[in-house]
């Protein structure tokens, strides 16, 4: 490699190395926030509040964030997670209302959501469009399609007789949505952390050229990453539709920012600064708890937005400030 006289700062996004102290600082902050809310908001630790937090807030964001983790681990980003979610919800509601059985509706919904990912995969792996622009394009097209299909954004309600009680169902006393998240996290977490696929994703995300020069099928890996990510979002779409008993067009975009934030909080917790599923789940919990606690101590929804935004920014700054300039 030829030496340059210049500041050798790389221009590309690389996972920074950060101080070990930071990894401890973040959990400490999390515990402090928990303690603060427990003291300041009496209802915070009540079973009712915690279970509603898990069921209503955690589950959906966790699924989307798991999908996002795949894309970010591979060095990309997926702006169309919401589109995958929406398409799945749309297909689910439409199929159920058309009288098809639950299995068909589930299958159709998963397929519809995953198709969005397949589209991205084609653009990224086939046409070599950067993930940001490819998923941005998908988002636009998805929005247009939803507007056309829903007359500009009118919700499509599930007929009362067609409503499956997915959100309230329990297995061995555990709510079905939680089980679904656990299963999703287990499979994705195992594949990313221990699987051959996860290692390939890791190499691709860190140094795509090295992946290529090591004989990995880099395009195929990228394609699968986006398909798998969309699948997780499709699951979230089914759950959302089953919870609100309706398909509300363009509702998936609300998860985008928080999902990215959660993944990066999770990456900050990791020793190597890598996006990872357990970290992402903690990140989601972190965001949920903060919002919930702020609500309980009487902050308006609007201030919650500001606080969450500031918090995410802070975490990002923390996670990148440990980076040595010479790297």
């Amino acid at each position: 490699m030829s030496d340059s006289y210049l500041d050798p700062r790389p221009a590309r996004l690389s996972w920074p190395s950060r101080r070990a102290a930071l990894r401890l600082a973040l959990p400490a902050l999390f515990v402090a926030i928990l303690a603060f809310f427990a003291l300041a908001a009496p209802g915070f630790l009540s079973l009712g509040n915690l279970s509603s937090l898990l069921l209503n807030n955690f589950v959906l964001l966790a699924m989307v964030a798991i999908g996002m983790t795949c894309a970010i681990a591979a060095g990309g980003i997926d702006l169309s997670v919401g589109t995958a979610l929406d398409f799945s919800a749309l297909a689910f509601v439409a199929l159920l209302n058309a009288g098809s059985g639950l299995p068909l509706a589930l299958g159709g919904a998963l397929l519809a959501g995953t198709l969005v990912g397949a589209g991205n995969a084609g653009l990224i792996a086939g046409l070599r469009i950067s993930p940001f622009l490819a998923s941005l394009g998908s988002l636009f097209i998805g929005t247009s399609a939803q507007q056309l299909l829903s007359d500009g954004g009118q919700p499509n309600y599930l007929a009362p007789e067609a409503r499956p009680d997915l959100a309230g169902a329990r297995f061995f006393g555990v709510p079905l949505p939680l089980l679904a998240v656990a299963a999703l996290a287990a499979v994705y977490g195992l594949a990313l952390a221990r699987g051959r696929f996860g290692r390939q994703v890791l190499a691709l995300g860190n140094q795509p050229l090295v992946a290529r020069y090591s004989g990995l099928a880099e395009r195929r890996i990228a394609a699968w990453v986006f398909v798998a990510g969309a699948f997780a979002c499709a699951l979230a779409g089914i759950l959302l539709a089953a919870t609100v008993n309706a398909y509300v067009p363009m509702s998936g975009n609300a998860f985008l920012m928080n999902a990215i934030g959660a993944v990066f909080i999770g990456a900050t917790l990791n020793r190597h600064g890598r996006a990872n599923i357990p970290g992402t789940l903690l990140g989601v919990l972190f965001l949920n708890v903060t919002a919930n606690g702020l609500l309980l101590i009487g902050w308006s929804f609007y201030w919650q937005q500001v606080a969450t935004g500031a918090l995410i920014l802070l975490v990002l700054v923390f996670s990148f400030v440990g980076r040595r300039p010479g790297d």
Binding site: M1, A203, N206, Q207, L209, V210, A211, L216, G273
Partner: peptide
Amino acid sequence: RRQGVALDLSVQENVTLA
């Protein structure tokens, strides 16, 4: 450093990559 080794991966992860 661009094509031969993945700098932020461990020695082990690099060695077994191919």
